[in-house]
């Protein structure tokens, strides 16, 4: 009698679990359906617009015709210049925090600051860039100011990912190096850095995709709605893909749908290619770990 009861109970428990499991499965899929839909819509509506002229010509006729070449060029300027600032600074800061800093109040404040820096809204970065680079350092609205703003925004990303990959290198490797008379820097250079490079690289690539898609942070610092010419130096303003997408989809009237969808498709394609690259790098090195 009692064993019969417990089987009943177990059955009801199992069927309850089945229910919850399927509900959770549905929520998970509910998440992927809009994503798939978005990509599909962008692809279907944007694909017809994409041709050589669209990629390599400038916008014309009040941004309702032509191509997006200046925006692509501007985005690349911003990506590379911001990487140029943010990579060395971020990696050095991570090295300092992980390998040299003592565990004291100062270090704890820096840690707290970096964690919080990651959550600061991008529009606040833009205000900072406006106040610090454009006005205070008198760089004006320029590619330089915009890139610096982007690099401050990406600093916590690079610091965090670099620290994680430095932590993944076992402490015993460091001690083994110190034991044979390698200095701290030699240990970092010959053993720690080479083995954390894939992780650092993943963080860098991720920050590229953030820089490519970011709009708010460059809004007041160096990006123009429309420029008839390509930037010639870092003190010029530039156009950017993300900004261009914002402009043509909200600020300009009469832009044909295919032109805006095409721009969105190029932007998201760029971001996705970069992200896929980072996923590939990461999974390659994960399967080729040396220890």
């Amino acid at each position: 009698m009692s064993s019969f009861k417990s089987t009943e109970l177990l059955k009801s428990k199992v069927s309850k679990q089945k229910w919850v499991e399927s509900i959770l499965l549905v929520t998970t899929f509910a998440l992927f359906i809009p994503v798939a839909a978005i990509f599909l819509i962008l692809l279907i509506k944007g694909y017809p617009a994409i041709n050589l002229n669209f990629i390599f010509a400038g916008p014309s006729n009040g941004m309702t015709e032509g191509g997006i070449f200046p925006a692509i060029v501007g985005t690349f300027w911003l990506i590379f210049l911001s990487l140029f600032f943010t990579c060395p600074l971020g990696i050095l800061a991570a090295l300092y925090l992980n390998e040299y800093a003592r565990d004291n109040t100062f270090t704890r404040i820096i840690n707290l600051a970096i964690i919080n820096l990651a959550g600061v809204p991008s529009i606040v970065y833009s205000l900072f860039g406006l106040g610090a680079f454009v006005l205070f350092l008198k760089m004006g609205t320029s590619i330089l100011s915009a890139s610096l703003t982007l690099s401050v925004m990406n600093l916590p990303v690079i610091i965090t990912s670099t620290r994680e990959s430095l932590l993944a290198v076992p402490k015993s490797f460091r001690e083994a190096c110190w034991n044979v008379g390698a200095s701290k820097w030699q240990t970092l250079w010959y053993v720690v850095l080479p083995n954390s490079l894939p992780g650092i690289l993943t963080g860098v690539i991720f920050s590229v995709s953030r820089a490519a898609g970011e709009t708010a942070a460059i809004l007041f610092t160096g990006v123009a709605f429309y420029l008839p010419f390509l930037p010639e130096s870092i003190f010029d303003q530039c156009m950017a893909l993300s900004m261009h997408l914002y402009t043509i989809s909200t600020q300009v009237v009469g832009v044909p749908e295919s032109y805006t969808f095409g721009t969105a498709l190029v932007l998201i394609g760029l971001v996705l290619i970069v992200n896929t690259l980072s996923i590939v790098v990461r999974s390659y090195y994960r399967s080729h770990r040396k220890w």
């Binding site: 925090l97 800093a101 820096l117 106040g131 006005l135 820097w185």
Partner: peptide, 26 residues
């Protein structure tokens, strides 16, 4: 190298404090 690394760490702090400072300043 140690000084360069220290400067890198310091710059991260400067930027963080700088965000507060410049937003408050303006």
């Amino acid at each position: 190298m140690e000084s360069i690394i220290f400067l890198g760490g310091l710059s991260a702090v400067i930027f963080t404090i700088g965000i507060f400072l410049f937003v408050i300043k303006e």
